[in-house]
């Protein structure tokens, strides 16, 4: 890491901490994880699964909503706000490369989301494991959840930064971030469910539909986690997890592809900014 990326990274991470994003995200994620775990623990005996595995499954479904939202909130203002305040012109007047700015911001904010996930899910997982007991399967499910949640957060930090560089204005960036969240996290699944019910032939449901689901980074995260938890009580679109026509690692590859795509697109948009 060169000095300039390091400088941007250090400032962005400091800002994420000072603006209480890390603390706030840790609090929210930790609270949800503990509450889900404690409520879910009662069903554990009936379903013959340990608390950590069960909670990992329900937390994966909830994290699909929360983590993209937190990542977008942290990143949407990053370029647009600096353009509006005139601060980006100063940064760009220095010998820094545009891609270095994007990469520095991306790394710092991804790490901020990652630290929040590690602290919140780590502490909640330890608490649940100690309170209700667990086995190797539960610990593995929990580790997978934390690691993929971090990747999911990074993808959406990349999305947020790209939209911010594209919009150039805080209000526009905020609107597009909310729009993206609604489309990828809420509307996409509803539209797919609607179409699979409307389609009469089985080919769409069995061959096309799973690929369309896994193409969405949020769904890819959820499918990967649920597909590897055999005892997960799943319903709706998540039921797909047990009948996937491809190995779960495809979902990981999709997340990786999205990550490279938002990085490449974001850097391209950053190069076009006229402060």
């Amino acid at each position: 890491m060169n000095t300039r990326i390091g400088t941007i990274f250090a400032q962005e991470f400091r800002l994420a901490r000072r603006n209480l994003w890390v603390g706030l995200a840790t609090g929210i994620l930790g609270l949800f994880a503990v509450v889900l775990g404690v409520f879910g623990a009662g069903q554990g005996a009936a379903l013959d699964a340990d608390a950590l595995t069960l909670t990992a499954a329900s937390l994966a479904t909830l994290s699909v909503y929360l983590i993209p939202l937190i990542a977008l909130l942290m990143s949407y203002d990053s370029f647009a706000g600096e353009i509006e305040r005139g601060a980006l012109a100063l940064t760009l007047a220095s010998p820094v490369r545009r891609w270095e700015i994007f990469v520095g911001k991306f790394a710092a904010q991804s790490l901020a989301v990652g630290v929040a996930i590690l602290l919140a899910f780590g502490a909640a997982g330890a608490f649940l494991a100690l309170s209700f007991g667990t086995g190797s399967e539960g610990i593995a499910a929990w580790m997978r959840l934390m690691a993929t949640a971090f990747v999911l957060g990074s993808v959406f930090v990349g999305f947020g930064l790209m939209l911010s560089a594209m919009a150039g204005r805080t209000a526009t960036a905020a609107a597009s971030a909310v729009g993206l969240w609604l489309v990828l996290v809420v509307i996409y699944d509803l539209a797919l469910l609607g179409s699979v019910m409307a389609a009469s032939d089985g080919i769409f449901a069995s061959q096309v539909f799973p690929w369309l689901v896994v193409a969405n980074p949020a769904d890819a995260f959820r499918l990967f986690n649920l597909a590897l938890i055999e005892t997960a009580p799943v319903a709706g679109i998540d039921g797909l997890a047990s009948t996937l026509p491809f190995p779960p690692t495809v979902a990981l590859a999709v997340l990786g592809l999205w990550l490279s795509a938002v990085l490449a697109l974001g850097i391209r948009r950053t190069k076009r900014i006229v402060p």
């Binding site: 400088t7 250090a10 601060a87 100063l90 007047a93």
Partner: peptide, 28 residues
């Protein structure tokens, strides 16, 4: 060359020294 725009607001939660350290880092 260096530049000072008409309206600039540095991040409010940084100290004066941190702002200068940031630009020092960028300028090497």
């Amino acid at each position: 060359m260096s530049y000072l725009p008409e309206v600039v607001s540095f991040p409010q939660s940084l100290t004066g020294r941190e702002v200068l350290a940031y630009f020092s880092g960028l300028r090497g």
